[in-house]
């Protein structure tokens, strides 16, 4: 069963904000994450699929059928809300059995299935409790169970971990992935946390101003971002404005760099992008004749545990690097294959 957006556009009544020309497909068992800053339209995409909003143009297809006109209750999609939206007046098993109840399943059977589902998320002993008696993480598990118990055609997760503490967030991230894999269900995850998206998604969609900027695997987004905004949103980066000064050479404020210029013409404007962990530290004397070597001094040295994140002040700017080396750094080398050229930022 697949979920598909076919050139979907929606704008909020009376405004120019919304989402535009969205084309996406989520395959069976696939987990697709949408990331972006707040206001980028990522939640709107989820609301369109859930049926809370109706697209202005384009089609939304579930398992090949256009569901644009059908109400949320007819779409058979499990949604986990940001604050879980567990019904406070129902016991846990009643919460989970609710979708079965509205489908007319007999009380005995729905109770049995609800309790079995609770067991699958590790909450089997709490069936008679009320939601208010649970911690955030436990409510999260119950919400997940409720969204899956009626064997929906897709699973929609709206910022599911944002209400949890940092430690619990890591645990629940793995739990969501485990349950999702077990159910083998097409899943849409909306999050502002790029690390969360990269760590569990099969595919990541980056949104900006209501439009898709890039779709790719986590690795593609991280290593070959489409532009400077993606590079800046996903992980740490060095981004310098530059221009092509010759075949295989680019000029930047920090100096000239050798890299693959992909046949760009001389004088073309680019953004030069280097991940900090690809910058190599030098601890001894610096060979200034090498065009990729820069002598400098440490202007900031942050100890992060596994790595140090260092800003090197060099002539003309700063270079950020990450290293596990201890001790003073006197300069850096930027290998030519660590450099990517992105479109210039206007």
């Amino acid at each position: 069963m697949t979920l598909r957006y076919d050139q979907v556009s929606y704008s909020y009544p009376g405004t120019s904000t919304g989402v535009f020309d969205i084309a996406l497909e989520i395959g069976r068992g696939e987990l697709l994450a949408i990331i972006g800053a707040s206001g980028s339209g990522k939640s709107t995409i989820l609301k369109l699929l859930a049926g809370f909003l109706k697209p202005d143009t384009g089609r939304i297809l579930i398992d090949g059928k256009d569901v644009g006109a059908s109400l949320p209750e007819a779409r058979r999609l499990g949604v986990v809300f940001q604050n879980y939206a567990l019904f406070p007046h129902m016991r846990l098993w009643e919460n989970i059995a609710y979708p079965l109840k509205v489908r007319g399943i007999a009380k005995q059977e729905r109770r049995a299935r609800a309790i079995e589902m609770l067991g699958r998320v590790g909450m089997g002993k709490r069936a008679e409790d009320y939601p208010a008696e649970l911690s955030g993480g436990q409510q999260q598990r119950v919400a997940l169970a409720r969204a899956l118990v009626f064997e929906p055609q897709g699973l929609l997760l709206d910022e599911p971990l944002s209400a949890l503490d940092a430690g619990l967030r890591l645990e629940m991230r793995d739990e969501i992935l485990r349950v999702q894999r077990q159910a083998g269900i097409a899943t849409l995850l909306v999050t502002h946390d790029q690390e969360e998206a990269l760590s569990i998604a099969d595919k990541v969609v980056m949104m900006r101003d209501g439009r898709i900027v890039q779709i790719g695997t986590p690795r593609e987004l991280y290593e070959t971002p489409a532009d400077a905004s993606v590079a800046a949103f996903v992980g740490q980066s060095n981004l310098w404005p530059g221009s092509i000064s010759g075949d295989g050479m680019v000029t930047t404020p920090v100096g000239a760099l050798a890299c693959d210029t992909q046949g760009k013409s001389i004088g073309a404007k680019v953004t030069v992008f280097v991940r900090p962990e690809r910058v190599e530290p030098i601890t001894g004397p610096v060979d200034a004749s090498n065009p990729c070597c820069f002598a400098g001094s440490m202007s900031a040295d942050r100890y992060l545990g596994p790595v140090r994140r260092i800003d090197m002040a060099v002539a003309g700017g700063a270079i950020r690097l990450e290293t596990h080396l201890r001790g003073p750094i006197t300069g850096v080398t930027i290998p030519h294959d660590a450099i990517r050229l992105l479109p210039p930022t206007s």
Partner: peptide, 8 residues
């Protein structure tokens, strides 16, 4: 949101 309750 419009899907919550029919306006009529």
């Amino acid at each position: 949101m419009s899907a919550r309750v029919p306006t009529s």
